[in-house]
Computed example of a mutant assay.
Amino acid sequence: MMTNQTETTSKKPTHSAYILKPKANSEQSDWIKVGAAWNHGDKDGLNLSLTILGQNVPVIIRRNKPKT
Rank of each mutant, 00 (worst) to 15 (best):
A24C: 07
K43P: 01
L20M: 14
Y18Q: 00
A36H: 14
L48T: 13
L46F: 13
N56V: 09
A37R: 08
A17R: 09
V34L: 09
K11N: 07
P13F: 13
P66R: 01
R63L: 11
N64M: 07
K43D: 11
R62H: 09
G41M: 13
V59F: 11
Q28H: 06
T14R: 08
T51M: 09
R62I: 10
T8R: 15
L50A: 09
N56E: 14
T51Y: 07
G35F: 12
E7I: 00
Y18R: 09
A24H: 07
E7F: 04
T6L: 08
G45N: 02
P58A: 08
K33C: 08
H15A: 00
M2W: 12
D30P: 02
L48K: 09
P66H: 08
G54Q: 14
A24Y: 13
A36W: 12
W38G: 02
E7Y: 01
I52V: 15
P22Q: 07
Q55N: 05
A37W: 00
I32S: 05
Q5W: 12
R63C: 03
Y18I: 13
T51I: 11
I61H: 00
K65H: 02
V57K: 11
N39K: 10
K11A: 15
K43E: 02
P58Q: 03
Q55R: 08
N64A: 05
N56G: 00
S49E: 03
T51K: 14
N47V: 13
I19F: 05
K33F: 14
K43F: 06
T9L: 04
S10V: 12
W31V: 14
S10K: 06
P66Q: 08
D42P: 01
A17I: 14
A37N: 02
T14V: 14
L50C: 09
K21I: 04
H15N: 06
G35E: 09
M1I: 02
N4E: 08
Q5A: 09
L46E: 06
T14Y: 01
W38C: 14
D30I: 07
Y18G: 05
Q5H: 13
M1V: 05
K65D: 05
G45V: 03
P58S: 02
K12I: 08
N39G: 00
G54Y: 02
G45P: 02
E7W: 03
Q5L: 03
G45Q: 06
V34F: 07
H40K: 00
S49D: 05
G35C: 10
I61V: 08
K21W: 01
L53D: 12
T14Q: 11
Q28F: 01
M2E: 08
K21M: 01
G35A: 11
L53M: 07
N47P: 06
T3D: 10
G45H: 00
N64Y: 02
V57G: 02
N47E: 15
T6K: 13
E7D: 15
I60D: 15
K43V: 03
L20K: 01
E27S: 07
L53T: 04
N39C: 03
P22T: 04
L50P: 15
S16M: 10
D42C: 03
S49G: 09
L20W: 04
S26F: 04
Q55L: 11
N4Y: 13
H40M: 00
I60L: 06
L20N: 11
I61R: 01
I32Q: 15
N25H: 11
Q28P: 00
P58D: 07
Q55Y: 00
I32T: 12
D42G: 03
L50T: 05
D30R: 05
